[in-house]
Amino acid sequence: MAVVTQSADALTDRAPTGLESLDVRKLGMWAFLGSECVFFGSLISMYFVNRPLMFSPALEAAHLTPKTILNIPFTGVLAFILLCSSLTMVLALNAMQQSRRRAGSFWLLATAFLGMLFLGGQAIEFIEIAHEGITLQNSVFGQSFLLLTGFHGTHVFVGIIWLLSCIPRALRGGFHAGNYIGPEICGLYWHFVDVVWVVIFTIIYLI
């Protein structure tokens, strides 16, 4: 008799029916990233709309404009760290596509470590800004900046958890040339977080 089975395997849920040609999980991830674009777009729009209020002669005199508060070389280093983490992420994926278990796990771990380094840097930055007398409550710049970069930091945090959760399976050799969709999707998310930082770095820090 033909048997109807049930299984918790992630793949078999999607009984192939015909037109299927894309990986649904990748498709779902990209749909989610499209949504995230609009989410960060909303936050960046908020920053942009508030930006005129962050500059005035009086604020300039009190050294309270973003230009005087933000430390561009320091965040330049943060941008560099995140860029490196993107490289280690693709290298991890590349190693797994060639079934190199140890290399793949190492690069995943390196990515997570760089992510933590980035978060640490961001924490230092937030503390420095607080020392300048800028908080969520008392500055238009403060609230706009902290919400936007805070949400980016939250995304980095989620990404780190995700990366770390991939590592046990990577060490067991669970990802190989025949199956690397997990780290690939995680990588998409991670690169997206990097790309958001590229935009934030330009719009908040440099311009």
């Binding site: 749909a31 989610f32 499209g34 949504s35 995230e36 609009v38 989410f39 777009g41 909303s42 936050l43 908020m46 508030n50 209020l53 969520l136 409550q137 238009v140 609230q143 706009s144 919400l147 949400f151």
Partner: peptide, 30 residues
């Protein structure tokens, strides 16, 4: 997918306005 994040961002700002002292929508706080 494309419209929901706008309100997600907006209600998050409202939440921080209400609980964490920001003033995104409060004219007396800029």
């Amino acid at each position: 997918i494309l419209a929901l994040p706008a309100i997600a961002a907006a209600v998050t700002m409202l939440l921080t306005d209400r609980h964490f002292g920001t003033g995104f929508f409060d004219p007396t706080a800029g």
